[in-house]
Every structure is written in C-alpha cells, then in structure tokens.
Computed example of a mutant assay.
Amino acid sequence: MNVKRVFGAVVLLCGASVLGLTVLMAANPRQSPTSVSSGVDANSASQRADTQSQGQTPERKLAEIEGIWRDWMKRNGVEKSAMSLSKGGDILKSAGVGREPDRAYPLASLSKAITAICLNEVLSAHEFDWSSTIGELAAVLSQENITPAKEMKSLTLAEFARHKSGLPRIVHQRKTALRKSNLPPQGAMTRAALSVPENFGKRGDFLYSNANYAVLGSVAAALTGKSYGDTCKEEVLAPIGIKDAVADMRGGYGGWSMSSDDYARFASHWFELEKVNARQFAKGGMPIRGSYGFGSGITTRENGRYYSHFGKWTNAGPRKQNVGALFLVAPDGIAFVASWQGSRDYDIYHDLKNKVMAALAQ
C-alpha cells in the first residue's frame, strides 16, 4: 500500500483503569535475530544491533538506560518487567526480570498508537482522510452495524484522534456505564459512543476517552472489510517483521499484547521524525500541535520532540491481571519500551519516563 504516514501528537494522557482485562499471550514468542533475550534472570542483556542510521548509539548510554530501568524496578517494588531499546526497527538492547523481552504481554493504552498509525495507512488508500467526518463515513460504518446519531456526524477523525470529540471518559449505554461490563468490545463501545445521547459532550476541549480510539479502530476495520486486528497486522506490523502480536476484542483502544522488543521496533520505525514531519499533513489535517494525536503525547525539549504514552490496566480480583507499560521515542529516533506486572500510580510512570528521557538527551 502507498506508505503515507503521519503522526501528530502531543501531551501525554494515560490509559483508563479497567476491570477484567483478558490477557492474550503469543504462543511462540519470536526471538530477535539482533538481540539475546535475558529471560527470567535477566542478567544478560541483548547485544546491540548494527543500524543504518547516522552513527551508532554509544553502548555506555544503552547500559545507563538499562541501569535506570533496573533501579526504578527496585525502588518501586516491581518484580516482573521487560525493557527494550530500538532504532530504525533494530533492537539495540533488551533485558527482562521475571519476564522475557521477546514474549508478548498486554500493553493497555499503548495500543492507541498502533490504531492511529494503522488507520493512517488505511486512509492513504481511500478517498477519506483525517478531516473526513463520521457523516461522510456513515455508509462505511454501516458495514460494522454502526449507525451514528446526527449529533455526531459532523465530528472529524482528527477530533477523535486528539480526544476532542466530547466523548466522556466512561461511555454509557443508556443508563449503564460500559465500564461495568469490563470495557466492552470495540464495536459495542463505538455503537454506544456514536448513538447514545448521554455520550454527546462538548467538542473541542481535550477529554481523554478510550471510546475515541474504539471509533478509529472501527473505521479502520470498516474500510478494509477485515477485522481490526488483521487490518493493523497487515498495515503496520507485518511490513516490519512483527508476527507475534495479538489483539483482543478491545484492540483499538487497549487490547494489544506484544513483546517489548516488538513494540520498540514498531515505535522506532513508525515514529521516526523524518516520517513524522512530512507525508500526509496537508491531506490529513494532523499537524504536530495541540494536546494529543496519533495515540501519543509529545514533550518538547531543546533537542527536539519526544513521543510517548502510558498504559495501565487496574483490575479487581486475584485472577485478573494488573499491567503497566510505557513507550518513549527520542528526537534521534531511539525508542524505549517497558512493560511490567502490577498497577502503579502515574507518578511512577513519570519517574521512569523522565529519567530515561534525560539519559537519551545526553
């Protein structure tokens, strides 16, 4: 497909808490040809891959970032975590403690970046773009049994991508909050978001809602006539060699399971700044500004822009897993990804992000 890509993005907002996430693991995790998994013990990190980018990342910096991650684990009582560093789709370094960096684990709201990039690729092959409205897409959405209310038809895809559609944090199906049904499948959330009056909020103001990315995921599936998971695998994952990612029914807004190695490959490939700053801006209406877009936030420093997102599922009950994840892409294209077991306060996320960001800036 024509590879027009764009990523708008800005301030990072985090994934919503959830009850009852179904954890899907890849049955046969892929061993990276450029890394050596440290496994459960994690005393050995992967060797750095040769890259075709400008120069090579100093091993000293990679070791420092791994040390930051290990120290962060100890200080915050994180017992199981994996981390990976990548540039240009190649693994520079990976390590794991209690889990392997080449095995898939839930990533929660890190799924949103996959959805945005996937839809951008799909749009480039159709007459629609990010300025297209839900009304213009109504016939397409009908294929997914989705009928938008007239109040929602003027909203653009860009407004959903930026969390400026007015949809609430907790979407309602008539009088019942969908969160009470474990955050439903993508299609069910989209139908409620676009048809139930209780969900029609003030557009234009930033309000983080998982439903925005359920809508975008549903549009991607409707345009291709395939499932959301198959669509995004074909559009953005398979082309860069990622084979073991799995999306559950919540995929568009938080259902992907992927190894830290593979997500680092994904982020370092698709968030390469030369690609972000060019391509489809005029057509897509998604310049790099505002508070949020393309499933990532943005932090501007003297050396450039950093793209990032947090992922968090908080579940009640002993059989329901709590998970956390973080991705960060530096101005030079290096991506850092970590996933871990356990639901943590967001100040812990910021602690890890800020320390890694400082190390990458050196």
Rank of each mutant, 00 (worst) to 15 (best):
N2I: 14
V3Q: 03
K4H: 03
A9M: 12
R30S: 10
R30Y: 05
R30A: 14
S32F: 02
T34C: 10
S37T: 11
A45W: 11
R48F: 03
A49T: 05
Q54A: 13
G55E: 04
T57F: 01
R60H: 09
K61T: 14
I65H: 03
W69T: 15
R70M: 13
M73H: 12
K87Q: 12
K87A: 09
K93F: 14
S94N: 07
G96W: 02
G96K: 01
G98R: 01
R99P: 06
E100W: 03
D102G: 12
Y105P: 08
L107D: 02
A108M: 08
K112L: 04
I114K: 01
C118V: 05
V122M: 00
I134L: 11
E136C: 00
L141N: 02
N145F: 05
T147F: 10
T147Y: 08
M152G: 05
K153N: 15
S154A: 15
V171K: 03
V171E: 06
R179S: 11
A193E: 06
G204M: 10
Y208N: 06
N212S: 07
G217D: 08
S218M: 08
V219R: 03
A221C: 11
K226D: 13
K243Y: 07
A247K: 01
S259D: 06
D261P: 02
Y263F: 13
Y263S: 08
M286T: 11
G290F: 05
G290N: 07
Y292K: 01
Y292V: 08
S296T: 14
G297K: 08
G311P: 01
K312P: 00
W313Y: 11
R319V: 10
N322H: 05
A325T: 03
V329A: 04
P331Y: 02
V337I: 06
A338T: 15
S339H: 13
W340F: 15
Q341T: 14
G342V: 07
S343V: 05
R344A: 00
H350P: 00
L352E: 08
Q362E: 15
